[in-house]
Amino acid sequence: MIKIIVLLLLATGVYGNDTDEGGEVNIEDDVVEDIDVDNEYIEVELEESVVGTDAEGITFTVINNHESSNLQGGAPYTLEYYDGEQWEDITPFDVFVMIAYIIEPGGSHEFTHIIRGEGEASLAPGDYRIIKIFSIADENGESESVEVIVPFEVVTE
Results as ranks from 00 to 15, higher is better:
L10M: 11
E85F: 05
D83V: 02
G16V: 09
D38V: 10
V62G: 01
E147L: 08
E157Q: 08
A100V: 11
G119N: 04
R129Y: 04
P151G: 04
F60M: 05
N64Q: 07
V62M: 04
T59D: 11
G73M: 10
E85K: 05
I136H: 02
E80K: 04
E147R: 08
G119V: 03
Y128K: 00
L10V: 15
S69E: 13
S143R: 14
I114V: 12
G141I: 04
A137D: 05
E85N: 09
V32E: 00
S135D: 10
H66R: 04
D34C: 11
Y15D: 08
T59M: 09
L8F: 08
L9P: 02
H109Y: 13
V25A: 10
F93I: 11
I136R: 01
I102R: 06
S69W: 05
V154H: 05
V6K: 15
D94T: 13
I42L: 07
V155H: 02
T112D: 03
D36V: 14
E21Y: 15
V148A: 05
I42A: 01
T59N: 09
I2T: 12
E142Y: 12
D54H: 09
T53Q: 10
V14H: 06
L9T: 13
E153R: 05
D30P: 11
G74Q: 06
E21A: 15
E21V: 15
G141V: 06
I114L: 06
T61Y: 07
I131E: 01
A75K: 14
F60T: 04
G22P: 05
H66D: 13
E48A: 11
V155F: 00
Y101F: 14
E120V: 13
D29E: 10
M98R: 13
E48Q: 12
I63H: 12
E144C: 08
E24R: 08
Y101E: 10
F96K: 04
D38Y: 11
G117V: 07
E139S: 12
K3R: 14
E157M: 09
A11G: 15
P92H: 01
G126V: 03
A121T: 14
D36Y: 14
S145N: 14
V148M: 06
R129M: 07
D18H: 08
D54Q: 15
D94G: 15
E104N: 05
I4E: 12
G13M: 14
I99K: 06
V51I: 08
T156F: 10
G141E: 07
G107S: 12
E67S: 12
I27R: 01
G117P: 07
T78K: 07
N26A: 03
P125N: 04
A55D: 04
I90W: 03
V14C: 11
P125R: 03
H66P: 04
G141H: 06
E120M: 12
D30R: 15
F96C: 06
G126R: 02
V148L: 07
V148R: 00
